[in-house]
């Protein structure tokens, strides 16, 4: 397969790329979001709840 067939060139090289597409085309930004979201909402929040349980006397 030639490179030309393997690509999806934009109609216009100067065409503005929408913000959402820029996000979806950035694997490392997605990696950041994919790690931060569960770390904050699942791990950190969950751990904070556990360490705030009063210790039995």
């Amino acid at each position: 397969m030639s490179d030309a067939e393997h690509s999806n060139p934009p109609d216009d090289e100067n065409e503005r790329i929408p913000a959402m597409q820029q996000l979806l085309d950035n694997p490392f930004l997605l990696l950041f979001l994919g790690v931060v979201m569960p770390t904050v909402f699942y791990l950190i929040w969950g751990i904070m709840e556990i360490i705030s349980i009063p210790i039995a006397k």
Binding site: S7, N8, D25, L31, L43
Partner: peptide, 27 residues
């Protein structure tokens, strides 16, 4: 420049798996 524009959907889905794997393995 082995491809132009965005990566194909199958690769995007595999990337999703790899992102989830990073959090999974770190945990």
């Amino acid at each position: 420049k082995t491809y132009k524009g965005s990566i194909p959907l199958v690769t995007f889905g595999a990337m999703t798996a790899a992102i989830i794997a990073v959090f999974t393995i770190a945990s």
